[in-house]
């Protein structure tokens, strides 16, 4: 890949045989060396998009270029650049880890290279399992075997379709660490997720997809400022007519209701807030909340917001 573009997707549409429109004209450019997170709720079309790029789903129209090569007319060159870890755990139970990873390399037409396979297995902490049959491994290890298979042929681009779905917190964190260390090797990574934190944790850029449409793509920082809205809500005992002017330096709003009403502190993920400081100040003005809770915009709320804004 000479220029800065790893993948270029243009007007990609997919209508499944049953008439379902899973992708509705997606345009997307993936930059070389970045971690791109495709974020969207279940059924948004993430898997369909990845599969259409990787040759598993036939696009109905539109084009995909991988490293400048069309993924249909120049599929050999295009596919050689890509490693895919699909969403579903699917492995050959009776094969050993070593054999299955070596097999994958062969499929991609690469000469045997035990050194590289060893490297990959060590990187993914699978080296001591290399002679085990896959059926004897835990789910997390199976997932890593699939990553090892995808890396076996030294791809420049790696797709991870929901790498941490159904995985516990510990494993999720170690998967994140592994993805980050992979990026150090210069590989471009595209991952899908429906967890905001995951995108936040790992991605350089984020694309949001909903109902087959890419609603926006943005640098993670910018996006988090827009999306990562948090609120600290102070439930009041007594009605308050106005917010005392001394508290004006805090981003506070007043919400009235039939009871005492609420004071709402709104901030984003980037700003530091000292809640106890706010509390002290409230107290000194005779405001004693009877309850305090925090609220963070859920993905659904963000979607609604984004769709409405559009």
């Amino acid at each position: 890949m000479q220029n800065g573009t790893a993948i270029e997707i243009k007007a990609l549409k997919k209508i499944y045989e049953n008439g379902f429109k899973a992708l509705n004209g997606v345009n997307l450019e993936i930059r070389r060396g970045e971690i791109f997170a495709l974020l969207g709720p279940n059924g948004a079309g993430k898997t369909t998009l990845i599969n259409a790029v990787c040759g598993i789903v036939r696009p109905s129209s539109g084009t995909v270029a991988i490293g400048g090569y069309d993924n249909i007319s120049q599929y050999r060159k295009a596919r050689s650049l890509v490693g895919l870890v699909p969403q579903e755990l699917s492995t050959d139970s009776f094969e050993t880890v070593w054999n299955t990873v070596t097999f994958s390399r062969g499929l991609f037409g690469k000469a045997n290279n035990p050194r590289h396979i060893e490297d990959v297995l060590k990187r993914l902490s699978l080296w001591d399992k290399k002679d085990e049959q896959i059926r004897h491994l835990s789910g997390g290890m199976k997932r890593r075997v699939m990553v090892a298979k995808a890396l076996s042929h030294e791809p420049e681009i790696l797709f991870l379709d929901e790498p941490t779905a159904g995985v516990d917190v510990e494993l999720r964190k170690s998967m994140w660490a592994q993805v980050r260390s992979l990026r150090e090797t210069g590989i471009t990574i595209i991952l899908t997720t429906h967890y905001i934190e995951e995108a936040q944790e790992m991605a350089d850029r984020v694309g949001i997809i909903n109902k087959g449409e890419l609603i926006l793509t943005e640098d993670k920082k910018t996006l988090m400022q827009k999306m990562g809205k948090r609120q600290m809500i102070f439930v009041l005992r007594e009605q308050l007519t106005t917010i005392p002017s001394e508290l004006g330096s805090y981003p506070l709003t007043l919400e009235k209701d039939d009871n005492g009403g609420k004071l709402i502190l709104t901030y984003d993920a980037e700003t530091e807030n000292d809640i106890s400081d706010v509390l002290d100040n409230l107290k000194s003005h005779g405001i004693r909340p009877k309850d305090i809770y925090s609220h963070q915009s859920s993905l659904e709320e963000i979607f609604i917001e984004l769709v409405e804004v559009k």
């Binding site: 990787c54 040759g55 060159k77 596919r79 050689s80 895919l84 699909p86 699917s90 499929l107």
Partner: peptide
């Protein structure tokens, strides 16, 4: 049936 066909389909194989 098992889903491992994904790998064959995504490989540079005619």
């Amino acid at each position: 049936f098992t889903g491992t066909i994904y790998e064959i389909l995504s490989a540079p194989l005619s």
